[in-house]
């Protein structure tokens, strides 16, 4: 497999998984109601930067 093809496959997967997660969070309606009772927005505004605090990495050659 050429490097270009592999790269684009990995990028697609990257977008897919996270995008699905974000869409799913938007569907949690009961949680949204409970959050709103305590004055929180839902899904919680959660800076992506939070994930950067760790050093997780995933490398596929």
């Amino acid at each position: 497999m050429s490097r270009t093809r592999r790269q684009s496959a990995a990028t697609a997967s990257n977008a897919g998984g996270l995008a699905r997660y974000v869409r799913l969070e938007n569907r949690l309606v009961l949680l949204a109601r409970l959050n709103s009772l305590l004055g929180y927005k839902s899904p919680k505004v959660w800076p992506r930067a939070l994930m950067l605090r760790g050093g997780a990495s995933f490398i596929i050659t």
Partner: peptide
């Protein structure tokens, strides 16, 4: 499996890209 594993982590909201 690792490509699926990566997808798995992302579906749980985990960033898998190295900072």
């Amino acid at each position: 499996y690792m490509a699926q594993f990566r997808d798995y982590l992302e579906r749980e909201g985990v960033e898998t890209e190295e900072p």
